[in-house]
């Protein structure tokens, strides 16, 4: 298994025309860390994630994923997970899970076995493999999206509000499954979210961005014990206190 790598974001700025989206962003993500990006809308959290993925070119500064400077999309270190799942509606769950490998030119046999393994990891083994996205619930669709990201065996997972459009009960189950996967797979994760509970529950640190232009406002440690999915951390007083502290920070930014 590949060792996790860190991400170094140094003095990154990005403008869209006259609008400055990101200003002088400075973040160090440790190897194997689970980091959440949160902030009011317009703070550039999704833009920053896309910059890390190489989908959005930065104006100045530097982003290193592991030892490689990000210069464009398609780097093999990081995989994206999308808010709207971004599944090919014409392809089955397995074909969707294979898609990243297909684009990277992996042979069919290798694609198939890697996709099977990834689907099994996210709990979609067996008959679901041949289902089309339209036949799957939102939660299951995002499991396929996660399997596609994992199938290429990245060192970094970049998740853009992955559970935002999924109902509360399914979301909690997916969060627990993600934590379990993360502890087994040892990936570095950067998660963009607008949910304070999600940020606190999942991550080691929360980076709070302030809007217009997007700047690092605070870096917030989450000293909750792990494995949180097994310890019923959501019910703890510490959890509630941390969510409230984060809210106090975010409230002043609205």
């Amino acid at each position: 298994m590949s060792e996790p790598v860190g991400i170094a974001i140094a003095r990154v700025s990005k403008s869209f025309g006259a609008v400055q989206a990101l200003s002088d962003i400075e973040i160090q993500v440790k190897a194997g860390e689970f980091l959440a990006l949160i902030g009011p809308s317009g703070c550039g959290k999704t833009t920053l994630l896309k910059c890390i993925a190489g989908l959005v070119p930065i104006d100045s500064g530097r982003i290193l994923v592991g030892s490689r400077a990000v210069s464009g999309p398609g780097g093999s270190e990081a995989s994206l997970v999308f808010q709207d799942f971004a599944l090919l509606p014409w392809a089955t769950a397995r074909e969707n899970a294979e898609f990243g490998l297909l684009l990277r030119g992996a042979p069919a046999s290798e694609r198939k076995s890697a996709a099977r393994r990834a689907l099994a990891k996210v709990g979609l083994a067996g008959s679901f493999e041949d289902a089309y996205p339209a036949e799957l619930s939102g939660g299951m669709q995002q499991r396929v999206g996660l399997a596609r990201a994992l199938a290429v065996n990245p060192q970094v997972l970049l998740m853009d509000e992955p559970f935002a459009s999924i109902d509360e009960q399914t979301r909690r189950i997916l969060q627990d499954d993600l934590l379990r996967l993360w502890s087994e797979e040892r990936k570095t994760v950067v998660l963009v979210t607008h949910s304070m509970e999600e940020a606190i529950y999942l991550s080691d640190r929360v980076v709070v961005l302030s809007p217009r232009p997007g700047k690092v406002h605070r870096v917030f440690e989450v000293p909750l014990p792990r494995p949180r999915e097994a310890l019923d951390v959501r019910a703890s007083a510490d959890f509630a206190r941390l969510v409230d502290e984060l809210w106090q920070i975010l409230k002043r930014l609205q």
Binding site: G54, S76, F99, G100
Partner: peptide, 26 residues
Amino acid sequence: ERSLVEMARSFGAGEAALFTRIYLPA
């Protein structure tokens, strides 16, 4: 869908792959 294009690009799809794998089937 824009996100399908972004997804394919994030896996390194070039113009030809985008065309045959995303735009045409879509």
